[in-house]
Write a protein that binds this DNA or RNA. Sequence first.
DNA 1: TTAGAAATAGGGGTTTTTCCCCTTTTAAAA
DNA 2: TTTTAAAAGGGGAAAAACCCCTATTTCTAA
Lengths: 213, 213
Amino acid sequence: MHKHPVFVVDDHTLLSQAIAQMVNTFENFNVVTTCKNGNDLMQKITSKEIPNPEVILMDVNMPIMNGIEATEWLSKHHPEIKVLALSVEDDDSSILRMIKAGAVGYLLKDSEKSVLEKALNETIKNGYYHTKEVANLLVRSLTKEESSIQLKEKEITFLKLACTELTYKEIADRMCLSPKTIDGYRDNLFTKLDVKNRVGLVIYAIKNKIYTP
Amino acid sequence: MHKHPVFVVDDHTLLSQAIAQMVNTFENFNVVTTCKNGNDLMQKITSKEIPNPEVILMDVNMPIMNGIEATEWLSKHHPEIKVLALSVEDDDSSILRMIKAGAVGYLLKDSEKSVLEKALNETIKNGYYHTKEVANLLVRSLTKEESSIQLKEKEITFLKLACTELTYKEIADRMCLSPKTIDGYRDNLFTKLDVKNRVGLVIYAIKNKIYTP
DNA sequence: TTAGAAATAGGGGTTTTTCCCCTTTTAAAA
DNA sequence: TTTTAAAAGGGGAAAAACCCCTATTTCTAA
């Protein structure tokens, strides 16, 4: 019987190997290879040395090229490959971003083995796998916030620098802008992000992975 | 041939199941059970319904009762059980704390399958498994800093509040102290932690897991 | 036992940074 | 051509940072 080819993408070698071994015990699936990050995956897909997978089990958080970027690339260049997100994160923004990037399902790492098998089978059969939890989340996100806050490139640069011990004056120097312009960015972000002071900016940046300590 | 009984402790069910399955393919080992956290482990050990393991593969970060607490408990009540820490964290403090708690080895989740097998075998044979990396780290921690900065209870309370949008005046209120005393704490921490301003305090607190955003 | 650290608590005051409300200029977009 | 946006800036108030100072208490070592 034909086994559906699967890739496992996770920066933690031991985990990707273990997951791969587990998937190989499933009747209908066969792990062709594991990848350490998005870049690694891109290379393996483009090199054509190994057959492309039907499904990719993709970790969200990876160094170099994360799951979201990798999924975006796949949606663009290989829309026929289904991406199943596999993550420890159950926070709304991670799930939303993966779904937006084109993932056909979202699976938490504290699921049962049987759930993984079911998710893989449903992805092959229906083209997607969605739990009630993710469905509920999507409804919530659409009704409550519409679209999450969109930051401009310079605002992100500023936000990253605001997470250091530099004074605003020094940040202005770094960004080659007048301190008064920085004043504007700051005040603008205060209202936009609904925070009161610089500590608020720092916490926001870290929560939203704009800055990683 | 006798197989050494192993427990796998990790809050991510899928990962602990996958790791367990992998360990079961090793010649000399047999996973008796998996646990979702330290509490779960404690119950299984004390209930005596299943034979105690020789080795426990222990995740560091878990809700309810983390790997460090669980290892401390084991060192106290079942020193004959060897704990191998298995973590994504490669930061110094996590490793140090696990070793101090009584772990006989530290393994990163991005190791190879063969490394895990080797670590398990060496733990049985020698009673420990230490890589050069961990050894180097321990030497560094002893020579460089002696003991990492020791914060007092009140300093920690202050530091946590400094990570919020509260002003120092409000922090003083919360701690039932004069703003001037808070001034003292702040200035003291500036020199102690070698930071220049409040952002420095926030970043320090987050890096050292005193505050979690 | 007593002098002297060391930790805790606080006072007063100066300088710098931060914050908030404004306006103007310039450039791009509709 | 009007509208929008980014960039730059003025004035002023509040907050934070940094300075030097004193008075307890507690512990410790001469």
